[in-house]
Design a protein around this nucleic acid. Sequence first.
DNA 1: AATTAGCACTTAGGACCATGGAGTGCCAGG
DNA 2: CCTGGCACTCCATGGTCCTAAGTGCTAATT
Lengths: 337, 337
Amino acid sequence: MLDDRKLAVLRAIVEDYVATKEPVGSKALADRHTLGVSPATIRNDMVALEEEGYITQPHTSAGRVPTDKGYRLFVDRLSTVKPLSSAERRAIETFLGGAVDLDEIVARTVRLLAQLTRQVAVVQYPSLTRSCVQHVELVPLAAQRVMMVLITDTGRVEQRVIDGLDRVGGDSVETLRQMLNRALVGKWLTDVPGAVEDLPAQLPPDDRPLAAAVLSVLLESLVERHEEKIVLGGTANLAAMDFSASLRDVLEALEENVVLLRLLGEMGDAAMLTVRIGAENSHEGFKSTSIVSAGYGIGDQPLAKLGVVGPTRMDYPGTMGAVRAVARYLGQILAGR
Amino acid sequence: MLDDRKLAVLRAIVEDYVATKEPVGSKALADRHTLGVSPATIRNDMVALEEEGYITQPHTSAGRVPTDKGYRLFVDRLSTVKPLSSAERRAIETFLGGAVDLDEIVARTVRLLAQLTRQVAVVQYPSLTRSCVQHVELVPLAAQRVMMVLITDTGRVEQRVIDGLDRVGGDSVETLRQMLNRALVGKWLTDVPGAVEDLPAQLPPDDRPLAAAVLSVLLESLVERHEEKIVLGGTANLAAMDFSASLRDVLEALEENVVLLRLLGEMGDAAMLTVRIGAENSHEGFKSTSIVSAGYGIGDQPLAKLGVVGPTRMDYPGTMGAVRAVARYLGQILAGR
DNA sequence: AATTAGCACTTAGGACCATGGAGTGCCAGG
DNA sequence: CCTGGCACTCCATGGTCCTAAGTGCTAATT
């Protein structure tokens, strides 16, 4: 059905449309690309492509524009991920280098990705479900309050205040602290529930209320509703894009972290580079955008995902190259800490 | 120069322009407000107001629009801060209630403020310079690395990794930990440098390199370049606004946290409700926006600031009311933790 | 059978113009 | 000092026309 030349035409249409932002006609294609055939032939190919639903024309006498399906074919079969220039690679290294803690690493990554792609960047914090406990600290704040600080091997530091306790003795806190660390250090967060099950029983009765309170907070807020954090950057780049949807809709969708997280979650895991185009995104606000994402992690251990959001009319090879490169470097940086 | 009626006219112009987003003419004013005079009289007043620079007309045969100076006069002398409805107050309380930690309190505050004002909300984290040390924790991560966690009374938890040490003994860490806490707990962060000056001298020689490394990180990254964090929300509301500047410029300016922090810093301190109108903001990107900000704190102890950014044509009384109310509630919530 | 040239057809968008309406400034009279 | 009246200005709106770009179809060519 679609011979090589038709595919070449589709590729040319996508490339030109992305570059010029204007519907592209048969004449322009013949001029700018060396397809070796005349505009008339290209026109014939275009009707075939249009019948198959890969391209469409905004109105009768306009050029053609790729559809979501057209972009999909382009991404799957007609393009190759474009590696970054060595200048860009160096920029990444120096830029991600000087970060002092996880927050700063993530913040810099998101800025970097936004700058490289000129689109909206999204970076998810290393998932708690993929982290191990490195240390648990209990800090007495007042007679009835204790702060719990959980430090993971991925660098995340989460704190919660446990409130409304009866007079808490310093010894009880210290005992519980040691016990928690003995039981939990090195464990996956997902394994924490099992590991703490029989802890209260090992304590003297006086200390059990405290232990119960601490454990319930730990389990509930950190394990069960496993909090995923996400950071956005480069929203200013939205202004230069023009969606079919309204800018407001896109901005609103972006502010819904829950939605973004779900979408990221639906995308390919691990080191996979995944592209979701237009209506493939199962959310109204992203219907006229594409999302390019990749997982990042330490070694082959996936931690979380990052990506960019832009108009469906985007430079897929370049964007995919940038996302992949940043994901890899981020993994390296995290590994080297 | 400006009698009461002229001021009333200015007030009416501002109110109508804010409501309708259209230049307002003498006839409309006479109809919609009970000024008790004819359009012709109003016209005369308008030329006076225009000569003084309070209003201007986009073109010869259009109505009048307030200038920055006009808004300034309106805010200073012609309006009163509008208290929130009781429904809104209750919304604030319930919304800010269920937050579990400082991050969530700040996140909720920023969403709330954006929703109430339908503009872009900005909330600064409690300033480190206004915080006291509540606890310092040292966690050995590996033979050559230690993580320092600093917890303040305002709920902030900052962590830094200290790297490149020689073999660190568990005892050394424990000794240093106790010593740091004895020396620092309860101290203002700004007083930390003085308080740690002679600490290394009190340690056995073997432990001094570790102490020096920890202290240098502590001083440098937390005290000297005292990190201020800031959070944005409601940028989707930007789409509905129309600035004279381009949307992109405003978005870019908003992403520059440093700029925002400086601007907030230039605004009135403590419980003061401050308004910066248009060109009063010393940054290009905010030339066509107004910023309404207030300090928040516990009791009369200021902690940091929050505010909203919107078009100069904004509902000042309403916005000021919302900002003031949210700042107060935030203080109360923080005090009650 | 595939490609190409030629041609008639469609349509968006720009230029041009006319017109109506909103608003002004000014003047003379109350 | 206020007001009604009036001439003037200018923007916004809508209509018309025209051009440029691009198409689809057919007949000729390879």
